[in-house]
Computed example of a mutant assay.
Amino acid sequence: MTTRIAVFPGSFDPLTNGHLDIIERASAMFDQVIVAVATNTGKKPLFTLDEKLTMIQGVVTKLPNVTVQAISGLTVDFMHQVHAQFIIRGLRNAQDFEFERDIANMNHTLATDVESVFLLARPENAQISSSILKEIAHFDGDVAPFVPSEILAQLQTKMAEKNE
């Protein structure tokens, strides 16, 4: 039997409860899930790549079939390196669907052996995005309901440093 390996790529700056929910659900569906942490070239990250890797690894330790790796370059190239067949993507709304559909079609054009799997965000996570959380945290708003507890203290510390 072939091992079903899925990759969940993203910048995760920071990891949210929405991301974690997708990771947990994917871990129940696939033999192995790789959280592929990238640097979004279109954004200025709050956390370094190493900080994100460490934080996410701390959050997913309870999931034995989930690993965390840095990624650079095309996701489909990384998937071939790790012998993954599936890309996991979360969808919060219609805009996410349109964006992710286009990426899925391009990924399929680049690598016909790669299949995209979309998981709908749970209602309680549908409004969460890392960008919105950073904005709330910048103005000292309460982001505790939206991030794993392991991430909260590091986010608050990073925002305090940034606001000094």
Rank of each mutant, 00 (worst) to 15 (best):
N65H: 12
F139T: 03
A38G: 15
E100H: 07
L74G: 05
L46G: 09
A153T: 15
D50S: 15
E150N: 12
V37C: 14
A126C: 05
T61G: 08
N65Y: 11
L74M: 14
D140I: 00
F118M: 13
V76Q: 03
A84K: 08
Q127D: 06
I71N: 05
E100W: 08
D77M: 01
E124S: 05
K52Y: 10
V66F: 11
E115K: 03
I56Q: 13
D142Y: 09
Q154F: 09
D50Q: 15
L46E: 12
L63C: 09
E150M: 09
L119I: 15
L53S: 12
F146E: 00
S130D: 06
R101C: 06
H83D: 15
N107W: 02
E124T: 03
I88P: 01
F78M: 02
K134F: 09
V76K: 03
K43D: 10
H108D: 00
L46R: 11
K62Y: 07
N40R: 11
I87Q: 09
A126G: 01
Q57D: 15
Q154G: 10
K43E: 10
I71C: 09
L91E: 08
T75Q: 02
A36M: 04
Q69A: 14
S131C: 03
S130E: 05
N40M: 04
D102V: 00
V76Y: 06
E98K: 13
R122Y: 01
N93Y: 10
V59F: 09
T41Y: 04
Q81W: 03
V59Y: 11
I128W: 00
D113K: 05
D113A: 08
I151R: 07
S149F: 09
G73A: 06
R101M: 14
L152G: 08
S149A: 15
Q81M: 13
D102G: 00
D140K: 13
E124W: 00
D140N: 14
P148F: 08
H83K: 15
Q69C: 11
A153H: 14
K134N: 05
M55T: 07
L91G: 01
S149I: 13
A70P: 13
I71Q: 14
K43A: 04
N105C: 02
K62A: 13
R92C: 03
N40C: 05
Q95K: 14
I128D: 00
R122E: 12
T54D: 15
G141A: 09
T39F: 03
S149Y: 10
I88F: 01
G73C: 04
V147D: 08
R122S: 12
M55G: 07
M55D: 10
V68F: 08
N107L: 05
E135A: 10
Q69T: 10
L119S: 02
L110E: 01
V143R: 01
V68M: 06
I151G: 08
A111Y: 00
I136T: 06
I71Y: 02
A94F: 13
H80F: 01
I88W: 00
D140L: 05
H108R: 11
S131Q: 14
